[in-house]
């Protein structure tokens, strides 16, 4: 067992899958000679050469579409966006091409490919560089949307995403790249897509989160445990397809839930989670379900305003106390 960063876990996943299958290649801005804008692809050019680790011009729409074309004829592209904010320019390829090709062709053209890169706010990057896109992407049938929170999950989910025969949107946390966690050495880690994981066990309240906010939920659960409040932390891990069974099982046990996400409120991932809860757990609820999310504003630059906009442990704790009628 080694303790490694989320960044290195992703690097291991890419390296292992490129060794495992020579149809897998990595393409994006600065992935090769620069070793990756966030160093996720460090060393891959040296090991696999320029045909399999491909630097592109700044042309998100173009290279996303190149990935789609290559996948149509049997390669397994991993397309890196330097951030998902830039991927907006490529959404035509993700949404209109990759997500629909199998359906439009009635099964003739599978899209075994991954679109990946950092998602969500970091620190003081302000409005255009601080956005969480999972609710947009999860809206689209034909895609899978994955949001790993820990190094172990990052590795196991990316390996599974690359092996999946469908187009997978893989949303990494920009603030997670330096976080560390245990990852077993020399063991094949393949985490099934579409399966949530309980990150903390508890019976008083469920917190349902994904991506970076899972770490916030764990922090809150560990702090409240000292007061005797036991939180069940459910990490969705995959937003589409969503593990409704895991959500329902937890909420039926705790009878209370707080749903946390980085994105905005309206039509957010949390809105869908709450919909599942009211349908599956109506008779089990002891309090209205509350949501914690980004303030309904573009992300401001100033430190204090940015802090006020983001979901954090204090806001999640307050929501938990409210559903427990402690506040």
């Amino acid at each position: 067992m080694s303790v490694i960063t989320y960044r290195d876990a992703l690097n291991q996943a890419l390296r292992e899958e490129m060794q495992h299958d020579d149809r897998v290649f990595l393409m994006g801005e600065e992935v090769a000679e620069y070793n990756g804008a966030y160093k996720v692809s460090r060393g891959l050019l040296d090991q696999f050469g320029p045909m399999r680790v491909v630097d592109t011009p700044i042309a998100e729409l173009g290279f996303a579409g190149i990935g789609v074309g290559a996948a149509m004829v049997g390669l397994r592209p991993v397309i890196e966006f330097m951030t998902w904010n830039f991927a907006l320019l490529a959404l035509d390829q993700v949404v209109n091409a990759a997500a629909k090709m199998l359906y439009m062709s009635n099964g003739q053209f599978p899209m075994p490919m991954v679109f990946r890169g950092p998602n969500g706010a970091a620190l003081q990057l302000s409005a255009q560089h601080s956005q969480a896109w999972e609710s947009w992407l999860a809206h689209i049938p034909g895609l899978k949307v994955v949001t790993p929170a820990t190094p172990y999950d990052a590795k196991g989910l990316l390996k599974s995403a690359i092996r999946d025969p469908n187009p997978v949107v893989f949303l990494e946390g920009e603030m997670l790249y330096n976080t560390k966690g245990e990852v077993p050495d020399g063991e094949e880690i393949l985490i099934p897509l579409g399966k949530a994981e309980r990150k903390r066990e508890g019976e008083h309240c469920s917190i349902i989160a994904h991506g970076k906010t899972v770490l916030v939920a764990i922090q809150v659960a560990d702090a409240l445990a000292k007061e005797g409040i036991k939180i069940d932390v459910i990490d969705l891990r995959t937003v589409r397809p969503m593990d409704v069974d895991a959500i329902a099982e937890s909420v039926k046990k705790t009878n209370r839930a707080v749903v946390v996400e980085e994105g905005w409120e309206l039509c957010g991932v949390g809105a869908q989670v709450v919909d599942y809860i009211q349908r599956e757990c109506f008779d089990f609820l002891d309090a209205p379900v509350l949501r914690v999310h980004q303030a309904d504003v573009p992300m401001p630059y100033a430190k204090n305003l940015e802090r006020a906009a983001k979901p954090d442990a204090q806001k999640v704790t307050s929501a938990v106390r409210k559903v427990l009628y402690l506040e």
Binding site: F25, M51, L61, G62, F63, A64, G65, I66, G67, V68, G69, A70, A71, M72, V73, G74, L75, P77, D92, Q93, N96, A97
Partner: peptide, 16 residues
């Protein structure tokens, strides 16, 4: 125009 990059991708795969 959305399919024009696909052609570059197919040709990339041929070369690959």
């Amino acid at each position: 125009g959305g399919h024009i990059p696909l052609a570059t991708g197919v040709a990339f795969a041929i070369k690959y």
